[in-house]
Design a protein around this nucleic acid. Sequence first.
DNA 1: TCTCGCTATGTTTACGCAAACATTCTTGAA
DNA 2: TTCAAGAATGTTTGCGTAAACATAGCGAGA
Lengths: 363, 363
Amino acid sequence: MNIQEDAAESVSPASTSHDSDSPSVKSARAARGPSIGDVARAAGVSAQTVSRVSNGLTNVEEKTKQRVLDAMKQLGYRPNRAARALKSGQFKSIGVIMFNLSTYGNRRTLDAIATAASQAGYSVNLIPLHDPTTGTVTGAYNRLKEQDVDGVVIIFEAHLFDRADITLPEDLPAVVIDSSPGYGYPMVDTDQAEGARFATKHLLDLGHQQVWHIGGPVSSFSARHREESWRRTLDEAGIEAPAVLHGDWSTESGYQVGMELGRNREVTAIFAANDQMALGAMRALHELGRLIPEDVSVVGFDDLEESTSFWPPLTTVRQDFLAVGRLSIEKLLQQIAGNNPASVVTTVPTRLMVRKSTAAPAL
Amino acid sequence: MNIQEDAAESVSPASTSHDSDSPSVKSARAARGPSIGDVARAAGVSAQTVSRVSNGLTNVEEKTKQRVLDAMKQLGYRPNRAARALKSGQFKSIGVIMFNLSTYGNRRTLDAIATAASQAGYSVNLIPLHDPTTGTVTGAYNRLKEQDVDGVVIIFEAHLFDRADITLPEDLPAVVIDSSPGYGYPMVDTDQAEGARFATKHLLDLGHQQVWHIGGPVSSFSARHREESWRRTLDEAGIEAPAVLHGDWSTESGYQVGMELGRNREVTAIFAANDQMALGAMRALHELGRLIPEDVSVVGFDDLEESTSFWPPLTTVRQDFLAVGRLSIEKLLQQIAGNNPASVVTTVPTRLMVRKSTAAPAL
DNA sequence: TCTCGCTATGTTTACGCAAACATTCTTGAA
DNA sequence: TTCAAGAATGTTTGCGTAAACATAGCGAGA
C-alpha cells in the first residue's frame, strides 16, 4: 500500500511552482479508485478478461486468472457498482420504507431484513419517515425510485396507505409488512389473530370471568386485528366483551388506561395490545395498590427483551420478527427474480410466553 | 422505440425457425424506465436540455422547461442514479456499519442518522454485523466500498476495532460513534463521563455513603468510561470505590448482579451502566423484598422510553441520541466535502432525569 | 494435410447522464 | 445596419462495466 516510488515525483521543482497558485489544492475530485482498465493494463490482459475474472466466469486460464487477481490485489481494485448497475439494470439493493424506527417490532424486523438481504448479496437502503403525510410518503417513493432499488419492503400501518394516494411505481417489486392486505402486494405479518386468541384464552383458562382489553390505536391494522380476535374469543366463550379502551402503544397511554381499569374492582384480567402498554398498566396497578397477579392478571403482546424483567415478569405473546423479516425478503427476491408469487398473505405464528403476571383470580 | 422498419427483418423464415426453440421468451430484461433520451424525444429537445431541467439549471427558457417537465411527468421519468453516480463519482450515499441494531441507543442513533442523511439528500446503506470477527468486519468494509458510498458511520465498540486488523480504505471519509478515540477518525459520542458523574453525584448528594456500580461489559468503551467516571467521582468525595460487578447490558445480567448486591445489606445505592441492567437489578431487589427507593436507590443510564413506567419509575441519565446521530452526519458530510475537520472528538451533553427510584438512605 | 470446432482472449459497443465544447438565436449599442 | 455579447440549445465525449461479437490458437477427425 505504501508505494514509495511515487513520492519522488512530487519533489520536482516544476510541480512546486505550479502549486503556488492554489495553496490549498482542493482535493475536489474524489480520487477514483483503480478501474477495470487499470487492472487490465497491470496484468497485461484486456479489460474484458478482468471482467471475466471479477465475475467468476470459468473460461479463463488459471495462469491468466492468477495474474489478474494479483493485479487486483496490488491495486486494491474494487468493482464500481454504479457502472455495474448502469450496465446491468440491476442494483442489488432493496429499499426499506418505514414510518417508525422506534418501535420494538420494527427495529427487530429491520434487523432481520438487513441480515437476510445482505446474505443474498443485496444492500439495504433505509428510508425512515417521520411525518406520515401524503407528501412525504410519495416523496419517499420518488426518492427510492431515484435511488434505484430493485424492490422495496414497506413497513407501516395500514391507515397511512389508506390516507396517502401513493402511486406505487408499477414495475417496482414490493412487499408490505404490518398492514392490511388488499393493496395487491404480497404481505407478511405476524398472526395477530392467533396471538390475541392465545392471550385471551390463557386468561379464560385460568378462570377469569371476563377479560378487559387495552387496544392499540384504532388506526393500526394490527391493533384492530388483535382486538377483533380478542372479541371473537370472548364471544366463543359466551362472554360479552366489555368496552375497549385505546392507547397509542406507549407506556404512558397504558398507564392512563391502566388507572381507569384498575379503579374498577371487577377487573381481574387485562390483555394489553403490546408490552409497553402492559407495562404502563402494571405501573398504574402498582400505584393503586392492586397486586399482580393476585388481584389482576396482565398479558402483553410482543415479548420485549425487557419483559422478563418487568415486575412481575410479564406473560406475553411472542412475535417472531426474525421470521417476518426473513420471509419478506424471500418474497421480495422472488418477485425481483420475476416469479410473481400472486398477492399472498404470509402469516407467521406466535407463541404465548407464560410468566408471572398471570394467575387464577382470587375467589 | 417502436421503429417498425426493423420489424421487417425479423419476419424472415430464418429467424422464425429459431424462435420456435424458446416458446416463452422470458421477459428477463427488467423493463428499464424511460431515459433522458426518451424524454428529450418526447419534448422535442436535446438530451442535454432535459438534463439541465432535471438538475434545475437556470438557463432554460420557461416554455421549453415546461415542455420538458410535461414530458417527464407523462413518461414517469426518474433520473437513473447509477448513471449519475458513474458520471459524477459521487454516490450520495452513506454507509452505516453497526455491530448491533438491537440496543436502544444504536437504534435511536440510526434513526437520527437516517433522518439527517436523507435531509441532506443522501441515502443510507445499512450493514449490520452480527458476528464481530475480523473477517466479517473487513468484509463489511469491502462490501461498502463496492457499494460505493461516499462515507461511512461506524457504530461499534472499541474492542472490535482493537481486535480486527481492519484496513480502513484510506480515502473513505468515516466517523466513529461509541468507540474510543485514537483511530484517527472524527468521533462523536455522548459525554459518558459527565453522565456517570451526574448519576453518582446525585446519589451522594442524597446522603448515601457509598455508591455501588453495575458495569457494562469490560470490552465496551462507553462502559469503561462510565465506570472510570463513577470511580473518579467517588474518589473526589473521598470514598473508596467498591468492587465493580459487570453485566453485559442485558436485563438478565442486571438481575444476576442485582441479586448479589441486594443480598448485601450495606448496599443502599446502585448506579447501573444502563437502564436495562437497572431494570434487572430492580427486579432482583423486588424479589429480595428490598424496597426501592426506601432501602435501595437505583440510577440507570440511557433513559429508555419505558423507564418512566418501570416500577418505580427509574431515575436515569438521558442520552441525546438524536444529537449524536445528527452530529455524526454533519461531521461526515464535512469530510466528504473535503474539509478535513482534523480528528476531533465531539461530545454530546447528558441530562439527569430524577424520578422515583432514588431517595435519601434510611437512617 | 486440412478443415471443424472448441477454448482463451481481445475489440466494440451501449448502458444513462452531464460536463465541455459548439452552434444558433436574440438583443442592444455603435 | 451591423456586430458583439450573451442566452438558449445542440453535439460530442467519457465515466466503468459487461454483453455481443470477433479473432487467434490448438487438437481431433477426415
